[in-house]
Design a protein around this nucleic acid. Structure first.
Lengths: 214, 214
DNA sequence: TTGATCAGATAGTGGTGGTATCCAATAATG
DNA sequence: CATTATTGGATACCACCACTATCTGATCAA
């Protein structure tokens, strides 16, 4: 298909498709002449991926490119690649490295195996420090509770990773981290509603305007 | 304290403090003369809050302002206020939306009480649609698993909300949603490492530089 | 042949998150 | 009391980002 069909079928404006080509997010089509190129289903999928990463996950074009590059590269080491992908995902954190005291204490309290250089350690440190600075420190008790359930969620994630094909594993792992995060965030917000309606006995039935009461 | 001390103690550049004042994120100090104003500890706390919301949560200045306004307003209805706050948090979603078929099916499968107009429903719809469009649909089985553990997390959250003071409850709920999310995201990424090191037998012990072989 | 479409290059746009400069009024200092 | 420094506030400016629009000459479809 030609670039105009690609734009039309993907719902992305033509000028933007060209922009993604320029920026290297979208690989060039197979040129059939000096002013013509063919694009395939792969390009369509790639555009969906780009839009999901930019619009839903909220990545910048530059970070989207690094994530896509990681997906494209055949990995020598899945864990290294995954670490790099995680570092490209928000919340962004500088490399400055200190002790990460809060994060290390937390992970050790949880008893998890971890690599202190993994970017998620710095992300955790930053998030815990932010919570503290705002007057809402996360106490160990609460953290242990979170950890237990988050680990269960991680087990579900891992169970879905294809074991045999390493290329597919990287893509799955990266997307699983990036794309599932908003799902979990939305679910948590909905769960707040459900839990409080049940636990606080606070009426919060279906549609407002409706007679939704208990 | 005067504005220069405020800037110094908070670590925020003076020009930026003035910018936040202009944008209405930071309330003006108590003017003692035409060219002098006093700022207090409250302003210091507010600056920390602004930086956490912009830098860690990644909100724009405009959205930070709406969140802060919600925290400041004494709420007629906690749930309405919380809904508005959630709408100001990423992932952002347009209001046009109709059936939310994926989201409604999901929440009904989970058996949760929900209000279909709650913004998190649209957020969930969008996140599920994005996952699908990228070739990684979240099947019901997996969703039920996520839901179970996310609900447990939500129970921990709700348990920490102050019951008596409604003003504090709004602030706690908003911050709890916004600030805790990065904590959970980082924990999940770390849990991936732990789970895979245990389940896949993939050794991922502490420092790299170590003999990190098989 | 002729008009439409194409790929690719270049330039322009609107919004955002600051930063820098200027000013007159006031505070601090000798 | 005179001089110098600093302040709050207003305005102007800036760099970056994600697009978007325009142009050009080649090539395709009729």
């Amino acid at each position: 298909m030609r670039i105009s069909s690609l734009a039309e079928r993907s719902g992305v404006p033509l000028a933007t498709v060209k922009y993604y080509l320029r920026e290297g997010l979208l690989p060039p089509g197979r040129a059939t002449s000096a002013t013509q190129a063919q694009y395939g289903e792969g390009h369509l999928h790639r555009l969906a991926l780009i839009r999901a990463l930019t619009d839903v996950v909220g990545l910048s074009v530059a970070r989207t490119r690094t994530v896509l590059d990681l997906i494209d590269s055949s990995p020598d080491d899945l864990f290294t690649t995954l670490g790099q992908a995680v570092a490209a995902l928000p919340p962004y954190v500088e490399e400055h490295e200190e002790g990460h005291p809060r994060a290390r204490a937390a992970i050790e309290a949880l008893g998890w195996v971890y690599d202190p250089h993994y970017p998620a350690v710095a992300q955790l440190e930053r998030a815990l420090a932010a919570a503290e600075s705002v007057g809402m420190p996360i106490e160990e008790q609460r953290l242990l509770g979170y950890g237990e359930h988050v680990r269960a969620i991680a087990q579900i994630d891992i169970a879905g990773v294809p074991r045999d094909d390493p290329g597919a594993a990287v893509e799955h792992a990266v997307l699983g981290t990036a794309i599932v995060e908003p799902v979990l965030a939305a679910l948590r917000r909905l769960a707040h509603q459900d839990v409080s309606s049940v636990e606080l006995g606070h009426r919060q039935g279906p549609p407002s305007g409706d007679d939704a009461g208990r």
